[in-house]
Design a protein around this nucleic acid. Structure first.
Length: 710
RNA sequence: CGCGGGAUGGAGCAGUGGUAGCUCGUCGGGCUCAUAACCCGAAGGUCAUAGGUUCGAGUCCUAUUCCCGCUACCA
């Protein structure tokens, strides 16, 4: 969309169950902030909204962990997140929260409208229920034995050992993680959003209309989901913490909106609150076709912002996002960032260790903003390293950008009495014209890159302009020219003219740099304005590319260093800290992990003899074994049962080599219902025992094949 | 399994049919106004692997390998 009347920019709502790390910052907040600051400098009508996502089961779980209430949890982390974002220069127009009354009203209205229009369907289903905790269980809070690979501790939605997606009903011997008891089943009614009805719309809107302007990773993911077949998705949950179903809706008692449904509506309620606070009308931002809506998110959020929320918006009569520039993930020192493993740099830690230090402040905010933008995972995962941070800060910000500004100011004070020198038209040469051209080109390149969501490239262009400034000054060598002294002991008239022109251009370049760097490094831009004694209005984007930003004869302040170097010692301190934090958290989690494992391993319920006698066990011998193509854990076995030879597929490839188990005597469940695995029908199951190391061993007998076991 | 993204000199990345580039790092030289910095120059890549299409492929096609991710409130 070109030249929209107004922009609405959103960043993914951070989940208020704990502190957030610099990966979140790099993925969703910083790019959005850069884009917004750029648009503001363009004097566009733009609103940048965000807020804490405060609902969902994980909040209540976190409350139990911290032995407090969900409200206390969200209050605590909302305040922390809001202050962290502010400290790092993320310039939201509003940082809202989904626990606010206006959000509840908005989400309820949204639900009611869709429900009244017949856009939702109602289904009754049986779900697992924990009688002790008196609550329905989210998929994630049920664990049991994986039906595919037989490993313990598989979750209700997925087995992490073999990666299979599961539904809770498939788990063998399910347990509630809340009480450790086996859950019961209860009927419950829920509203669903029938995504499958909107497949055609999504195909056309995403895969046709946006096939050339959306990022390839986003398009690829969307296509993958659409092709896989969209399913109706539950909109409601049986929980207490969340947006309640409006009381006039029959059957809604005791239910809340599923957090995925209410969270994105938070963008709308935040806009409403912003409008109230600023005496504006919120509606055009969500209803007028001339509004450009852009969602900044990380790749885990693509499905919500490209598939689900757009369907909701369409049904509700709102505008659709113009783009969803999702980033990939940022790793940290060779490993994935993970809050639960303590392998992360929390925003709050960075702020305390660098920003709120004597030699920190805005320059260290900008240092982080610089590095995160320079290594932003725009097209693939990238990696944050402290050494890389140090290198980028020391060699690019300090040496190239900071040094250019500093030497310009120092020379101007030394050779031009601290005033902006005149530009002598008669001696302008090719290099001067080239520099002016570079400035104008840089503006256009930065512009194009920002508008195409390529912040890494845009920022590089700004630094490159400073690099060109350094080269220009080196070629002109005003400090050498100044040695051409006349009889009065001052530089000759012709020498002074050369000096004037060089520094005049370097100063105008500095002014341009402050405009171009402003969206990325706002503190730095502000400091430059202070040094140049100009008001912030000079930073308006329309001024970029001009060569008369500083008036001749205007006296400027003495230079201040824009950035400081990062010492080796600081790098090692941070590395130590990271390792220590990770170790501490892993140790703290260890006992908890054991407890949950033991909960899973409790005895199965007592069965009657009749139940046992239904199982037909026979002895046999493995006569052939081969790996199943393209499956890590499966072996295809031929087992001689005396009277017949059975094909059995068994998930034991990680434990045994096929050639080593030929001839192995085994006990087989022969009347298990056949089951296809990777296209091969398996007729039975081999009994195995797991030793204390988690290795599997065969259970065998030396009697003849085909003997019954009882 | 399947699907999506990725694989280019030590590191990070550009390059989507026509002589393989950039930044950092390394090495050498120059200069000195500047936060021991800045400028210039050099070394360093069989563009993951194997085939194919083409006058010509990092770029298109096929197969393979490896990394990341995949309807989890981890960006």
């Amino acid at each position: 969309m070109n030249n929209p009347k107004r922009y609405l920019i959103t960043s993914a709502l951070p989940y208020a169950n704990g502190p957030k790390h610099i990966g979140h910052l790099a993925g969703a907040y910083l790019p959005a902030d850069i884009y917004t600051r750029y648009l503001r400098a363009q004097k566009r009508d733009v609103v940048f909204v965000c807020g804490s996502d405060e609902h969902g089961a994980a909040i209540t779980i976190q409350a139990m962990k911290e032995n407090t209430t969900p409200k206390a949890i969200v209050d605590k982390y909302h305040a922390l997140l809001e202050s962290n974002m502010k400290d790092l220069g993320i310039s939201f127009d509003i940082y809202h929260r989904t626990s606010s009354p206006i959000h509840h009203e908005t989400a309820q209205e949204f639900f009611t409208k869709l429900n009244n229009n017949g856009d939702l369907i109602i289904k009754e289903s049986e779900q697992y229920f924990d009688d002790t905790a008196n609550t329905f269980l989210a998929d994630r809070y049920i664990i049991g034995t994986c039906p595919i690979c037989s490993s313990e501790g598989a979750y209700g939605d997925q087995c992490e050992k073999c990666g299979t997606s599961l539904s809770p009903e498939q788990l063998i011997n399910p347990k509630s993680t809340l009480s450790g008891n086996p859950p019961s089943k209860k009927k419950t009614t829920h509203w669903y959003l029938p995504l499958d009805k909107h497949e055609e719309f999504l195909r056309e809107w995403i895969l046709e209309n946006h096939k050339s302007d959306w990022k390839t990773n986003v398009l690829g993911q969307c296509k993958s989901w659409i092709d896989a077949g969209l399913q109706p998705r539950a909109v409601t949950r049986d929980l207490e913490w969340g947006v309640t179903i409006p009381s006039d809706v029959p059957g809604g008692a005791g239910k809340v909106l599923y957090v995925w449904f209410d969270a994105p509506i938070g963008y709308i309620s935040a806009t409403k609150q912003w409008a109230l606070d600023n005496n504006k009308d919120w509606k055009p931002y969500w209803e007028d076709k001339d509004t450009k809506l852009v969602h900044f998110i990380g790749k885990d959020n693509i499905v919500f912002h490209c598939i689900i929320f757009p369907v909701m918006l369409k049904l509700h009569g709102n505008i659709l996002p113009d783009n969803v520039p999702s980033n990939e993930f940022m790793n940290l020192e060779g490993d994935k960032m993970s809050t639960s493993r303590g392998w992360s740099i929390e925003m709050d830690d960075y702020i305390n260790d660098f920003v709120k230090k004597e030699n920190g402040g805005g320059m260290m905010v900008d240092a982080l903003r610089y590095y995160l933008t320079a290594i932003a995972p725009e097209t693939k995962d990238s990696e944050f390293t402290w050494k890389g941070f140090q290198d980028a800060l020391n060699s690019e910000l300090v040496s190239i950008f900071g040094n250019f500004v500093n030497r310009t100011f120092v020379l101007m004070h030394k050779l031009c009495n601290g005033k902006v020198p005149p530009l002598h038209q008669e001696i302008i040469d090719e290099a001067d014209r080239k520099l002016l051209e570079d400035i104008s080109n840089a503006k256009q390149v930065v512009e194009a890159n920002i508008e195409n969501y390529k912040y890494r490239d845009a920022l590089f262009e700004v630094i490159d302009l400073a690099r060109k400034g350094n080269k220009f000054m080196q070629d002109k060598e005003p400090w050498i020219v100044a040695k051409q002294i006349g009889e009065d002991g001052k530089p000759t008239v012709s020498a002074q003219k050369q000096i004037d022109n060089c520094l005049h251009l370097c100063l105008q370049l500095t002014a341009n740099l402050s405009i171009l760097i402003n969206p990325f490094l706002p503190s730095t831009a502000e400091k430059l304005c202070y040094m140049m004694k100009v008001v912030n209005k000079m930073l308006d984007w329309e001024n970029a590319g001009k060569s008369n930003l500083l008036s001749v004869g205007y006296s400027l302040r003495a230079p201040e260093l824009l950035f400081r170097k990062m010492e080796d010692e600081e790098v090692s301190i941070q590395m130590e800290k990271l390792k220590a934090k990770s170790k501490k958290i892993m140790e703290a989690n260890q006992p908890a992990a054991n407890v949950s494992n033991e909960a899973v391993k409790v005895e199965k319920p007592i069965i009657q003899f009749d139940d046992f006698s239904k199982i037909d066990l026979k002895t046999g011998t493995i006569i052939s074994a081969e790996k199943v193509e393209k499956a890590d854990k499966l072996l295809k076995l031929e087992v001689d049962l005396g009277t017949e030879i059975r094909t059995i597929v068994s998930g034991i490839a990680l434990h045994f080599n096929p050639e080593n188990i030929i001839g192995q005597k085994v006990v087989v469940v022969t009347n298990l219902a056949p089951r296809k695995m990777k296209g091969i029908e398996s007729n039975g199951m081999i009994l195995m025992a797991e030793n204390s190391d988690g290795k599997l061993e065969f259970i065998s007998s030396h009697v003849n094949n085909g003997s019954s076991v009882s």
